[in-house]
Design a protein around this nucleic acid. Structure first.
Length: 483
RNA sequence: GGCGCUAUCGUCUAGGGGUUAGGACGGGUGGUUCUCAGCCAUCAAACCGGGGUUCGAAUCCCCGUAGCGCUACCA
């Protein structure tokens, strides 16, 4: 029997990491089992659904590489089938008309809530004589269709939680069709899952208590139930379900922040699942190969951005520089630092730049930011760097000496420039660091940077000399420093 | 309130009757060095509580406790 799974988001917001993780497990399972992954948009809540959110969700899924095989299907376009399923249930005696005014029921529910007692629909309309029901329906009385919950216990073998049971008496006769004839969630979901021949329902833990109701619907319909797997929720640092309150939750926000889809994918898979052998860096194909519900935990997992950053850095390290260049191109363009020559004449040079930057980057945005010292024409001196390395008034003269040496050194490579600088330091009787740090500030404006000689060579002799000149001018223009 | 789910280092987890309770992130320390990162070495850090069962329980059972989720004519 072929595996058919679905991801069924509501288009009420962007694709958040919790939803993405649910989609991801569905995807992994489908790929592992060589099954079918179906995308179904549950847009039947007209109040909250926004059409443009559907596109945002699709965009998030494409970015993460969660390709679907069928769909997207729209639940709102399948209403007639849902209603038909409801009518079938009524015809077979599994559902009945309820004429109770919703406002009245709501009031009683709230009153029970206030008193702190349990309340469920008392089945007043179930007791109505058949003739009266017919008469009232014929007279056009508004009515909902309620499912008649049978006696007994509903159990299933959850792929994550194992054997799970609910006493049916804790369930109320829930509404299938509203008074206006529209189907409710449980009816729509089961109707669609049956219609789409879904074999395995993989969703968040928040649906665990919906499951008995839905199983009852399958049984009333005479349909085989799918297997269920309820994934633990993703939590914020306060251990509550991750939400906007905790910061970034949309997958697109992670893209903007400089994370790679491969890293987020890997991270999300590890959130609640473990291969068991301690490996952490697991590219997509490996994940597909290893995935099994055996490794899925039952406990909610806190989203730890530190670990995501670490994984991201691992993917950056593993990425060919040419690919990194493509990935940061739009960000460089946005900063006005991009030039077509970076893919042409200066391609090899730029790859060296990326090479020395990548080991120190946890996010692509770090890398793109650090490119500025090589691509930008002007650099700004950071106040920390100035305070730390430019206080000595002898620096002006030292930089002039260094400039002279660097103007002549041949070849202009790391080894020779370093040798040259050290020679100057020796001649002046000072530690090399007294030249290195101001040089770093001259070249990068920062107190921290990659190895200063690597930077020097990549900046190039001409620009390096200009930057040293600028530093000297800056220091000379500066009012005398209090000693 | 009712129902349900869950419980191993700060975090993600491995282990499932006898282990020095393992790994990873993060943190500490030391080394490399021109800074930072990286890398290498190294350290600290956990079985929610109480009862059973057993020669022996983190592991099995029960009871608590805590956290979370659901409790609509929302999805």
């Amino acid at each position: 029997m072929s595996v058919r799974v679905r991801f069924a988001p509501s288009p009420t917001g962007y694709l958040h990491v919790g939803g993405a993780r649910t989609a991801l497990f569905n995807w992994l399972f489908a790929r592992r089992q060589e099954g079918t992954f179906i995308l179904r948009i549950e847009d039947t809540d007209v109040e909250r659904s926004r059409e443009e959110m559907t596109e945002a969700i699709l965009e998030g899924m494409r970015w993460l590489g969660l390709s679907w095989d069928e769909g997207p299907f729209y639940q709102s376009q399948r209403r007639d089938r849902h209603k038909e399923t409801g009518r079938k249930l009524a015809a077979s005696g599994h559902a009945y008309a309820c004429f109770c005014p919703p406002a009245e029921l709501k009031e009683r529910r709230e009153e029970a809530e206030r008193k702190g007692v349990a309340w469920k629909y008392e089945r007043v309309c179930l007791a109505l004589p058949a003739e009266e029901v017919e008469r009232r329906i014929a007279s056009g009385a508004p009515h909902a269709l309620r499912f008649r919950v049978p006696e007994g216990t509903t159990t299933w073998e959850d792929r994550v939680h194992g054997s799970t049971a609910f006493a049916n008496e804790t369930l109320e006769d829930f509404v299938l069709l509203r008074s206006d004839g529209t189907p409710t969630y449980h009816l729509s979901v089961v109707s669609d899952d049956v219609g789409m021949r879904i074999s395995d329902v993989i969703r968040g833990d928040d649906h665990l208590s919906n499951t008995p109701k839905q199983i009852l619907l399958y049984q009333a319909l005479g349909m085989p139930t799918p297997t269920f797997a309820h994934l633990p929720l993703i939590l914020g640092p306060d251990k509550k379900r991750l939400s906007k309150r905790h910061g970034a939750v949309a997958v697109t926000e992670y893209r903007e922040a400089g994370y790679l889809p491969e890293a987020l994918f890997n991270f999300l898979a590890l959130l609640g699942w473990s291969p068991g052998d301690g490996r952490e860096f697991l590219p997509r194909e490996e994940l597909v190969r290893l995935f099994s519900f055996d490794g899925v935990g039952k406990k909610g997992a806190v989203f730890d951005e530190q670990k995501l950053q670490w994984l991201n850095s691992q993917y950056i390290q593993a990425m060919p520089v040419a690919v990194i260049r493509e990935s940061i191109r739009s960000e460089l363009q946005a900063k006005g630092l991009w030039d077509p020559s970076l893919e042409g004449d200066r391609g090899a040079w730029f790859e060296q730049v990326v090479e020395i930057l990548k080991a120190r980057s946890r996010k692509l945005s770090d890398l793109a930011r650090d490119c500025a010292i090589f691509l930008g024409e002007r650099i700004e001196f950071s106040s920390e760097a100035v305070a730390k390395h430019l206080q000595d008034s002898a620096t002006i003269q030292r930089m002039k000496e260094l400039r002279t040496a660097l103007a002549e050194v041949e070849p202009f490579d790391e080894a020779s420039t370093e040798q040259s600088l050290r020679k100057v330091a020796e001649r002046l009787g000072i530690a090399a660091a007294k030249l290195i740090h101001p040089l770093r500030v001259a070249l990068t404006g920062q107190a921290i940077s990659p190895g200063v000689f690597a930077v020097l060579v990549l900046v190039g002799r001409e620009r390096a000399l200009q930057r040293i000149d600028r530093l000297v001018q800056y220091l000379e223009a500066r009012p005398p420093q209090p000693s």
